[in-house]
Amino acid sequence: MNPRIWHIATNTFREAVRDRVLYNLIAFALLMSGAAVLVGQISIGIERLVVINLGLTAVSLFGIVIAIFIGIGLVSKEIEKRTLYTVLSRPVRRWEFVAGKFFGLSGTLIVNTFFMAIGVFVALLYVSHSFKHADAGILVALYFIILQFLIITALALLFSSFSSPLLSAIFAFALFLIGTFAEDLRGFARLTHGIARWLATGAAYLVPNFSALNVISQVAHDNPVSRQLIAYNTVYALAYTVAVLSATAMIFERRNLK
């Protein structure tokens, strides 16, 4: 990788870690252990279901919150603190800065998710006392969640490059919500006619498709995820992320940093 992008990425990672973002893991660990123990006590035959559903949903939500709250500050904080000026007065191109920030935050989230995954599996082991073959599905679900993180990080970065932190947070969160119901939005588009149909369809394609990336219930019920879906989702997430990052680079390239 381009050395400047790498250094910016590692610096972003270091900043996030020292800003105590990883402390969220403590909260997560508490949640998972609490749930595992409680569920183990009640023992109504759905321990696996609860642990997987709760665990994966928590991984997803914690991560989205981190992605948004750190993401929205990635550019605006550097401008506010004027650290950006000293970076850009060096032979660093603006798009390299965007890329570095993206990789830094994504890396942080992947590391965070890795630790959380361990937590989920430990809790699962505790309630089930063994692993099943179907547990591989959990890995797929986690992989999809990471793809979601990539998309949300790119979006938060996009908004951060031209908007205030508050607005960025609102936009990013709104897109996350709408994206979760993206399939319904497309279904709704199919039911309408005329202008409404065009608008709804356009919106449905612009909005990130998080519904296809959410296989938590499916995996909790031991239903496998098709390989085709894995392949398609991977390419989709990468294409969408690249699109958003290009837009960010374009906007940032022309921005006057007053």
Binding site: R82, T86, S89
Partner: peptide, 30 residues
Amino acid sequence: KAQIGFLPEQPYFYDYLTARELLRYYGQLS
């Protein structure tokens, strides 16, 4: 750009880095 240096007005810098880490970072970028 590799041959110029810039000190902006009232800089703040990255809170959680040490002075040495900060300069290493900038050195790498330069």
